[in-house]
């Protein structure tokens, strides 16, 4: 494990992802998802919306970090908000 050079932030990052996947699986077992069409142009399941949210979060972070002087926490906040909107109405 030493060669993987873990740091605290990346550990938190991957733990969050793992927790999300576990949570989604449990949610799926308790109440299976129904494919539906929201404001996105394609019909999606919960898992699809989570993926779209995470992927766009990646791009939001890159844009903020690369091309603006803004804090990364702002990007994080925006991403979380966007993810919630996507999960609810996407």
């Amino acid at each position: 494990m030493e060669w993987m050079v873990w740091t605290v932030p990346t550990t938190i990052f991957f733990s969050t992802i793992a927790a999300m996947l576990a949570g989604m699986t449990m949610w799926e077992v308790v109440s299976p998802t129904v494919e539906r069409k929201g404001f996105l142009p394609i019909s999606t399941t919960r898992g699809d919306r989570l993926f779209i949210g995470l992927l766009s979060a990646g791009y939001i972070h890159l844009l903020v970090v690369g091309f603006t002087p803004l804090s990364i926490w702002l990007a994080l906040g925006a991403s979380v908000l966007w993810l919630l909107i996507l999960m609810r109405w996407g």
């Binding site: 993987m4 050079v5 873990w6 740091t7 990346t10 990052f13 991957f14």
Partner: peptide, 14 residues
């Protein structure tokens, strides 16, 4: 995962 770890650090050795 290792790539992500590398990307936030300046690594000389472990």
């Amino acid at each position: 995962m290792t790539v992500v770890n590398y990307s936030v650090q300046d690594v000389f050795d472990a």
